[in-house]
């Protein structure tokens, strides 16, 4: 029981110690990797600076809007498509073909038309998140037990009730796990739009810090990105477990 708490802490402490000693001793050149202490100092400076919080706000806003927009389009559409054999046949192949196309593909075009604003970010996030969500939702809806559907039919539930009370709950676990993946990918794509497209946000700060060769700041910002990723994974993981529990 103690091991479960002590070992992870020990692992973190060990990694931190390794980082600090490797950079201090000169084993790793300070021009390649900053010391842990200077990174922590840079992180402290960041946390007290207004532009940092503005950048966080920009990143989080585009991430959240992109994710919500994807879900708002993909989940209802996925429900409708999955519930209809005809619609499923009609759109499955095109959507399956669009899904593996990396969101980065449309970056040059979107940058051209939307000039790196928040709409541009949301568009790219949606290319990354919308198709997997749509496909997974329709799969989830189709994956339902035949008997449950027959029961609903035999009680003469209408199309609307069948979709909302029978098919949607059955699809929820798959939708929740797809949402978790979409949330992670939306964050990565948001960073890409900032790193490459020059959109304002955490990624842009990272580019600026790297351009100024401010290593501690680069590492501090990367750390922040990782922590935000961890937060997103934890939140959506909790959602996923909650949904799984209701079944």
């Amino acid at each position: 029981m103690i091991r479960r708490a002590v070992l992870p802490a020990l692992g973190i402490a060990g990694a931190a110690g390794l980082w600090e000693s490797a950079t201090r001793s000169g084993l790793v050149a300070p021009t390649d990797v900053p010391t842990l202490t200077s990174t922590v100092t840079a992180l402290g400076d960041l946390l007290g600076s207004v532009p940092f919080w503005v950048a966080i706000g920009d990143t989080v806003r585009s991430w959240a809007l992109g994710l919500v927009a994807s879900a708002a389009v993909a989940i209802p559409l996925g429900l409708a498509i999955g519930a209809s054999e005809r619609a499923w046949r009609f759109v499955r192949i095109p959507v399956e073909a669009l899904r593996p196309i990396p969101p980065i593909v449309i970056l040059p075009l979107a940058l051209l038309i939307l000039h790196g604003g928040i709409t541009f970010k949301i568009m790219l996030i949606m290319q990354g998140a919308l198709w997997p969500l749509l496909i997974q939702t329709s799969y989830g809806v189709r994956d339902i037990d035949r008997v449950v559907l027959d029961t609903a039919r035999s009680y003469r539930l209408g199309w609307w009730r069948r979709v909302v009370f029978v098919r949607l709950p059955a699809a929820l676990p798959i939708v929740a796990s797809a949402l978790k993946l979409a949330a992670a990918s939306a964050f990565a794509v948001a960073l890409v739009t900032e790193l490459i497209g020059g959109a304002p946000g955490l990624g842009q700060l990272l580019v600026v810090a790297a351009g100024g060769n401010d290593l501690p700041r680069v590492y501090a910002l990367t750390l922040v990105a990782g922590l935000f990723g961890l937060l997103v994974a934890a939140a959506f993981g909790a959602l996923q477990r909650r949904v799984a529990q209701t079944r």
Binding site: P8, G11, L191, V192, L206, A210, T222, G226, L230, A233
Partner: peptide
């Protein structure tokens, strides 16, 4: 147990965020 938190951190850190560090 030892590496759990570190692996978790690197799993959720988008690889693209590491580009500046790799470039440096």
């Amino acid at each position: 147990d030892l590496l759990g938190p570190l692996v978790g951190f690197f799993l959720t850190l988008p690889a693209v965020a590491l580009l500046p560090i790799f470039v440096i």
